[in-house]
Amino acid sequence: MEERTIIEVDGLVHRYGDFLAVDHISFGVREGEIFSFLGPNGAGKSTAINVLTTLLPIQEGRVVVAGHDVSKNPAKVRESIGIVFQEVTLDRDMTCREILEFHGRLYSMQREERRRRIDELLELVALDHKRDTLTRHLSGGMKRRLEIARGLMTRPRVLFLDEPTIGLDPQTRLKMWDYIKAVNEEGTTIFLTTHYMDEADRLSDRVSIIDHGKIITTGRSYELKNMLGEDLVYLETSDNSATRALLEQLESVTRISEKGHGLVAVVNSDGTRLLPHIMETLGQNGITLETVNLKKPSMDDVFVHFTGKELRDEGAERPVTTAARAGRR
């Protein structure tokens, strides 16, 4: 399949007063893919999405969405995109049908087309039985689905999703991913921002890691993980600094970092074969091994590797994250 670029960003900069929220970012999104911005809260993801969707006037750089320059032709950009905002933006006092009807009218859709599209979408997001229910009576997951349906109402070429599963319970998140994949398979390009590693990992074709307003790296999630080597070995020993010195002599160990009470070694060979050798060497040097763990790199590790820190979560969202992670096991 021919790969065409549907979003082109070149040297985008956005400031709030003195604060540099987006710092010279450039990237491209290919038509038909799911592309993620992964980064902590406050990394500049929402600012970037607001510029791409024309809600914020562009300050510096060039952004082309669906063939239209956001600074020269914002109206054309608006016609080509759908948006699902981070917070719920549904009128509590309107029914599901009215929400979609209002949206269709905003985009000058014809009556007959609106009617047909509302039927299709309510079925797609499994809300046809809630058609005439006020949105105030919907659950969190239903609200999100209705917002996705609304974002798709006008058959946009690109759908922007800003933190699509924030605050949802684990089962609902999984279902939401299925809906997003289904929408993507129908041909809609998806641009999403998230601070959940698993979301970026499992949902997207390509990921950009963004921190402090800068894109740190971009690639397919397995490519990013492979950059870290084959396996990660975690060790807690009686003498970590001596262990470190020993590990540094091993050829297949590419990188060593401290984590908690132990050390993490990134290795570029098969960890299951290397580990007995490491344990033997430690024993010969009189170092007692307390804990050992071997695992494949995850997106978390990728993030730590590229940003040099854990994905920081703001306090308020911690319980959600923990619950969501626990639910995956």
């Binding site: 016609e79 949206h103 905003l106």
Partner: peptide
């Protein structure tokens, strides 16, 4: 304040 205005502001209206 409720964020509903964004839907309108992001539309071609």
């Amino acid at each position: 304040n409720w964020g509903l205005m964004r839907e309108i502001m992001a539309s071609p209206l």
